[in-house]
Design a protein around this nucleic acid. Sequence first.
RNA 1: CGGGGCGUAGCGCAGCUUGGUAGCGCGCACGGUUCGGGACCGUGAGGUCGGAGGUUCAAAUCCUCUCGCCCCGACCA
Length: 571
Amino acid sequence: MRYSRAFIPTLKEVPKDATMPSHVLMLRAGYARMVGAGIYELLPLGTRVLHKIERIIREEMDAAGAQELLMPVFLPSEYFKETRRWELYGPTLLRIKDRKGGEYHLAPTHEEIITDVVRREVKSYRQLPLNLYQIQSKYRDEPRPRAGLLRCREFIMKDAYSFDVSEEAALESYAHMHDTYHRIFERLGLEYRVVEADSGAIGGKQSAEFQVLAQTGEDWIVACGACDYAANVEVAQAGRAEPPAISSAEPAALEKVETPETRSIDEVVSFFGGETTTAHTLKSLLYVAGEEVVLAIVRGDHEINEIGLARHLRVDEVLLASDAAVKEATGTEIGFIGPVGFEGRIIADPDAVAVPNAIAGASETPYHYKNVNYGRDFEAEVVSIRQATSGDPCPNCDGKLELYRGIEGGHIFVLGTHYSDKMKATFLDEEGHSHPIVMGCYGIGVTRLIAAIMEQHHDEQGIRWPVQVAPYQVIITPIGKDEEPLIKATEIYDALKVEGVEVLLDDRSERPGVKFKDADLLGIPLRITVGARGLKQGIVELKKRTESESQDVPVDGAVAAVRAALAELGG
RNA sequence: CGGGGCGUAGCGCAGCUUGGUAGCGCGCACGGUUCGGGACCGUGAGGUCGGAGGUUCAAAUCCUCUCGCCCCGACCA
């Protein structure tokens, strides 16, 4: 492609609405533009990157025996009504009415539709297993789209669905996809972790998230430094922390203290001044879990894991009680609740009950108790309900957990018969008995990965694409006002094209600085600089985007040098 | 949904407090000089000041409503 003809609108200045590196870069480097909140158009460069990523995904999915198909995004409501997701999905589902008043929606995901195809066409165990996938736009009316392509209302996703005759077979399919995902993320040049995750409302039995590590990610994950244990903090096993060491570990007498204006742990700690630390306090949280109201206790410096709590209570979710509910259940205000004297179910974290002489709310405004001791002053079900955090011992080995932020790039689930039961997708076995098909589903956020790769591969100057996903592999930059550099550059350009290399020839009549800045901003992995100076000595310069020094290569050897460099970069 | 911020030329911003000619930088077009890390000089095009209503002789500026975008939070007591 000749740059002079290419549609690459770069920006010198940072658009004011962008804060995150990938968001700034995709706008500045001319990869994408915003159309509305969480709605973007991909410009030619962005589209090329998208296609590169899709190609890698297709190659690996096809190699794994999956078959691509394409399903509609615009769907009649009947499918989602069949599984009750029409109600359950809530406002995130983008609903549409047609001219006759018929109810439709834009697909946020396709389990129902694929299950429908399969139940209509698959009748026998002989037709299984099956793995079908598509790469398609999805729509979710996110409460808060953000960060450019990282959280959009319209986005492209690869979703695959596996269909098996049994749980064991489904687990095999799942394991196969697990391997396939490793290959895909590897090939995309991403640093990532596979983590245990919550399978959410979909009701999965087993699931794993492929988390791309990035400081700008939305998710918190912990990973062991010594073994391969890694988990989303939502589900991570929290290790035991040391109870706070204090001078007098002997239980002291319970003491009620007036503590005005101490609604948060921090306020409580500063009220007591040097006497205490957050680790000596108990955080008491009142939750509504189904019909029940429960009091959850974690140590003051810990965070509660609501998903863990919900699991222990065997409910789908727990909700923090409202001000009014707190008043009704405890007779006091938020900020002064405590376990002492609480009449009802109490769930306490092991680290919380291990705190001697703790400070906790007195269930009376505005008082706290000093010297609260588990066993003497309150009883509870002791269950690990806090979030894992940095420094916690690994549940699998002697290592320590570290905290990372991640971008959820992929998520794979064993669904079981959740959808096939509801939608009566069954098959007949050898004996003619009918069984529900056992399903799995496997997603990759394709457009999100464009941003995720940028988050991991950039510097102050711009993007630094891994070759496999770069929109062009090489950019040729002829320099100076003479004709000679452009002529030579064009020769090299033609020769590379013949070789099948994807090249951008910067034939614009811009000054060198402009061309260099743009080349760096776009992030093309290799740059060939053709200048009058070098040509006098019969050389051109070859430079990797990730390196600061270029190497001189003979003009005749440019093509070979590019080929070698590409091979080195893994292209 | 709650809180905060912002909407003025393609992009980044000033002007608004104290109403009276819409301005600067970048970019864009033309001419000239320049040419190895976002050059310089000159000329020029480009704006219903997010939208609607109101106050006023007069509104980018004051008032009311509304739409959009960004950030933080969505109950961690």
